[in-house]
Design a protein around this nucleic acid. Sequence first.
DNA 1: TACTGATGTCATCATGCGCTGACACGTTAC
DNA 2: GTAACGTGTCAGCGCATGATGACATCAGTA
Lengths: 112, 112
Amino acid sequence: MMTSVETDIHFDQQVAWLRALADPVRLKIVHLLAAEALCTCHLVDETGARQTNVSNHLRFLRDAGLVESEPHGRYTYHRLRPEAMNRLAQVVNQLADATHVVQSQNVRRPCP
Amino acid sequence: MMTSVETDIHFDQQVAWLRALADPVRLKIVHLLAAEALCTCHLVDETGARQTNVSNHLRFLRDAGLVESEPHGRYTYHRLRPEAMNRLAQVVNQLADATHVVQSQNVRRPCP
DNA sequence: TACTGATGTCATCATGCGCTGACACGTTAC
DNA sequence: GTAACGTGTCAGCGCATGATGACATCAGTA
């Protein structure tokens, strides 16, 4: 049984993940990284965004826990973190599943 | 084989869904609606937000295609749209699955 | 060693987002 | 019919977000 603090932390984590994905450039980056690990310069080419902007977005994604980065000489490789992507998928799946139950059984709270 | 236009529409739809969920109040509303259909007044009570703010958020969720609303006398019931939640879940699942492949096979693009 | 290249940090700015409150409109209760 | 209630729209405001460019730092090359 989750306490209120644990629930809040988990909820805030969900918001952070979703915010991270809610920007077009960042979502594009995540789609690209879902196919292969890439350097910043690859992401700059693929997205068409300025290098500094890509760097800012990657910072955001890292802070949200979705991406990890690793220096490789003068280059930096970025990849998605599977466990974070999994947990996000779990949340969304639970919402989608619950939505079906609510609809099929027409669950609703009575009006006051 | 999707054309570029179809891809863009689909991508924009993803961004719209994610933006809809990326606000704390809206995510809270979605969690609540995943449990049961609710009136605006219920959502006002549960979220603690102003009625007009809840109304604004519901407009946003409807425009994103995640929620549908239906008048019920002086009340309005809101519910999540299962097909939209499903499609969102699919997108996130695909990203999570692909992430595992990239990691287990260490797929990466060579540096320039 | 000097120069080039990749990348991240910092500061700044314009725009858009989220919140608020007045108000209009439809429904319900008396 | 009138008043109360529920809700959505509109307009306005303050702040956060996303983009930009200068610059610093580190790695690679000649």
